[in-house]
Design a protein around this nucleic acid. Structure first.
Lengths: 210, 210
DNA sequence: CGGCATCCTCTTTGATACTG
DNA sequence: CAGTATCAAAGAGGATGCCG
């Protein structure tokens, strides 16, 4: 990106990450660190392949991304965020919070990827009783199953995959689930909107907005 | 801006404010709300005038900016942030924090405007003893004089202008002043770097990082 | 002067095709 | 799979013109 040429921290930040697609690439790597090129393309519907390549190179030069050879079984290399890249989390979190109200006006025209829901869960949901025993929820927001677990420090761990026995299971659309877990939607109301909840409703009290 | 077409809060936010110059325009309006077109141009060195006009129109349509007829004495209209626009403050703050380290590598090639320093002061400095009587510092970071005052709620008020009797006076470059007031630089060290401080050094204890 | 609109050139983007 | 290459269209940047 052309520099703004302004001696201002905001302008410098935008010189670095203000280009089109860059912060969305950071989002992808924040959701699942250690991505192949193809994984990134799938998580970034609409990106032209040449731009993805350009951006990754620029981000590597800027010290945001690391391209490393994958361990033996894999025949390719993986992209990771550097610590400096991970420091963009507050930026992503702030932008996401601000952008959330814009999602309402969406008549399903936009594309959606299941795994995207993991990021707001990680950023905005926390465990309100870290001392109590760990809890695991299985979330079904789309095709993929996402696991949400409590962690000792009050934050939650989010991963996709399957587990034998979650403590509860939630099936619904991403926003319902997110609003339910941040306490903005009551279980009763969510149920009338079609969300399914299996398990002890008290478990929900463990979760709240961060 | 072309939409990313992704059902994701971050992507939606970037659809709205991700275009080149947009967040810098927000910065200007955050520093001094109620700007004329010309004020904006001065605060945004390098912006092509047609782009400024384009962006302002788009931002008005997006509900970020309000263009209002100025009260009688002024023969023009003023641009203001809407409440929704002002909600971008956490975004600007996060980006600014992230970008701050990039300012070091600057050999004075970039342009600088005095009033820019007001924003980090407001965002990152706070009053550590709100109950105590108000205090006013006169800051000279460039040509312009900037006043920094404490406010009852722990935040500080920043304005440019002159006052009869500040409680102390600081002359230095913007980063020195900012680092001094956020407690990252000691007065002693700042002085050896050329900063001038007139007044009671204890006053500095009132200020810290937010 | 303040507040744009126009015109032109150059760069970036997006879509698609192609290659090791 | 992981990119490069190509090319048309959109956007950015700069200069200048216009109008109250």
């Amino acid at each position: 990106m052309r520099s703004y040429g302004q001696e201002c921290a905001l302008a410098k930040a935008l010189d670095s990450v203000g280009e089109r697609w860059t912060l969305l690439i950071v989002r992808e790597l924040m959701i699942r660190d250690g991505c192949r090129y193809t994984d990134l393309r799938q998580g970034l519907p609409g990106i032209p392949t040449n731009l993805l390549a350009d951006r990754l190179e620029a981000m590597e030069e800027a010290g945001l991304v690391l391209k490393e050879a994958a361990p033996p079984p894999v025949a390719t290399h993986l992209f990771r965020l550097t610590p400096r890249g991970r420091e963009l989390e507050p930026v992503i979190a702030a932008l996401g919070r601000w952008g959330a109200p814009l999602l309402q006006a969406n008549p399903g025209k936009d594309t959606f990827c299941d795994h995207w829901v993991a990021l707001p869960l990680r950023l905005y949901v926390h465990d309100r009783a870290p001392q109590e025993p760990a809890v695991t929820l299985a979330l079904h927001a789309g095709q993929e199953q996402i696991l949400l677990g409590t962690v000792g420090d009050g934050s939650v761990r989010v991963q996709s995959g399957r587990t034998a026995q979650p403590d509860a299971r939630i099936v619904g659309n991403p926003y319902q689930i997110l609003r339910l877990l941040t306490g903005k939607l009551k279980l009763q109301d969510a149920r009338t909107q079609g969300l399914r909840y299996e398990g002890d409703a008290k478990l929900l009290r463990r979760f709240g907005a961060a």
